[in-house]
Simulated assay, not measured.
Amino acid sequence: MYQFTENQFSHFFNYLETLDCYTKSEEGMIEEIAAFQQNPNRHIAALVCQNISEVLTYPAPYIRILYVLSGSINIYLDGKKMTYEKGCLILANKWTEVDYKENTKDTMVVSFYFKPEYFSDSLLNQMIEEPMLYRFFVESITEDTEIFSHYCVYQFNEWDDVHFYVLLLLKQVVKMRYFNNKVTKSAFILLIVEISQMSEKCLLLQDSNISAGVLIKEILGYISNNVRIATLTNVAHQFHFHPNYLSAMIKKQTGRSYSDWLTYYRLEQAKRYLEQTNLSIQTIIKEVGYSDKTFFFKRFKTYCKMTPGNYRKNFNYKYK
């Protein structure tokens, strides 16, 4: 577990101040959010707020993460007042009204703002093993879902690793001038995984909204990442459904059967193995969950209009 010293904190925030992410007025925060909104190349923004006496009510129609670095704040979530101390972390979608007031002079609050474009499929797939937070982010960026407030409130200890990962993400976002890069997204994933791992003891409050469409996306994401073991029975057990109910729900929501989806993901994975590795075809067959070579060849030829061997040869020839 990493612990910051007082000197490190001082050096850290001195560095951040040189990069203009440190604000002491609501007007400054509004200007920064406006600049963020107007720049199509920026998908993430971060601010550190300190010494603001009024209630902050500025509009921020983005997915947000707020973290109390020090002191305490009064939070107004959809008009409901709550008081939280250092270590409080709030996730909120763009429909949630989040106003807050700093209670003490030493209060510092970090705010991260995310545009939907930040959450690429590859980034979301890295969260698939953290189901509650995966659902939160997918729900928050899906345009065709109902409009409703969605939030989670946690209370961490200042010595928890979440504290370190918030600062790591903050520094990386500011250092890269708010533009995306692999290290920034890696820092974000580290923070999300740590939040998820500590949810059982640190989650204080959350709404209960979740749409069937988002749940289906989570299930399909799980199948895609676990094709070798993703039988209907295994996946139903993973998500606490009866197999027949899960099968019917997928059919109703997507128009395709569970078997169709599993076949699609297995064959797409087989194609990636053929394109990107030197694994033998027999090994690939096992890796994607098939036990019958003849059955696999038949399915693959129907899907790709050629045998696995010819597919690999054609791909290698095309990209030499």
Rank of each mutant, 00 (worst) to 15 (best):
Lys301Ser: 06
Tyr2Ile: 08
Leu66Trp: 10
Lys115Glu: 00
Ser186Thr: 09
Ile223Asp: 06
Met82Thr: 01
Lys182His: 14
Asn310Asp: 13
Glu218Thr: 07
Lys185Phe: 15
Phe156Pro: 00
Glu102Gln: 07
Ile281Tyr: 12
Leu56Ala: 05
Ile285Val: 01
Trp261Thr: 00
Val162Asn: 03
Glu27Thr: 10
Asn7Leu: 11
Lys94Trp: 12
Lys80Arg: 13
Leu262Gln: 06
Glu268Asn: 12
Glu200Arg: 07
Gln197Asn: 11
Tyr76Asn: 04
Ile219Gly: 02
Thr307Tyr: 04
Ile52Ala: 00
Asn180Glu: 13
Pro243Tyr: 02
Gln269Ser: 12
Tyr311Ile: 02
Ile44Val: 05
Gln206Asn: 09
Pro243Cys: 05
Val183Tyr: 14
Arg177Met: 08
Lys313Val: 08
Lys182Ile: 15
Asp121His: 15
Ile65Cys: 05
Lys175Ser: 14
Met306Ala: 06
Met249Thr: 00
Lys286Trp: 13
Ala34Thr: 06
Tyr222Phe: 04
Glu17Met: 07
Asn316Ala: 15
Lys80Cys: 04
Val227Pro: 00
Asn314Pro: 02
Cys21His: 07
Phe179Tyr: 12
Asn157Leu: 15
Ser186Gly: 09
Leu89Arg: 04
Thr96Phe: 11
Leu56Met: 02
Phe136Gly: 00
Lys94Arg: 15
Ile189Asn: 02
Phe315Trp: 06
Tyr113Gln: 03
Thr233Ile: 14
His43Phe: 12
Phe12Trp: 10
Lys175Trp: 08
His163Gly: 04
Val174Asp: 01
Tyr317Arg: 15
Thr5Arg: 04
Leu47His: 04
Val98Lys: 00
Arg266Ser: 03
Val183Pro: 13
Asp161Leu: 11
Leu203Gly: 07
Ile285His: 05
Ile65His: 00
Thr263Met: 08
Trp261Glu: 03
Asn244Phe: 15
Gln276Ser: 14
Val288His: 04
Thr83Arg: 01
Arg177Ser: 09
Gln206Gly: 00
Asn180Leu: 10
Ile219Glu: 00
Lys252Gln: 09
Ser280Leu: 05
Val288Arg: 03
Phe36Ser: 06
Cys88Ser: 07
Asn180Thr: 12
Ser111Pro: 10
Lys94Gln: 09
Leu77Gln: 03
Glu26Asn: 13
Gly71His: 01
Lys298Met: 13
Ser122Glu: 13
Phe9His: 10
Ala35Val: 14
Ser140Glu: 06
Ala60Tyr: 12
Ser25Ala: 04
Tyr100Ile: 00
Ser259Arg: 11
Tyr134Trp: 12
Leu274Ile: 09
Gly289Glu: 03
Lys86His: 03
Ser257Thr: 02
Gln253Ser: 07
Asp292Met: 05
Ile219Met: 01
Phe239Asn: 01
Lys101Gln: 11
Lys252Thr: 09
Gln38Trp: 14
Val153Gly: 01
Glu97Ile: 08
Asn51His: 12
Arg312Trp: 03
Lys217Glu: 04
Lys217Trp: 13
Asp78Ala: 07
Lys298Asn: 10
Gln38Gly: 14
Glu102Trp: 08
Ala46Asn: 01
Asp292Lys: 06
Tyr154Val: 05
Val98Ala: 00
Ser53Leu: 15
Met198Tyr: 13
Ser120Gln: 08
Asn314Arg: 06
Trp95His: 10
Ala35Ser: 13
Tyr165Ile: 14
Pro131Ala: 04
Tyr265His: 01
Leu267Tyr: 01
Phe12Ser: 03
Ile219Arg: 03
Ile65Gln: 01
Ile63His: 11
Met176Val: 15
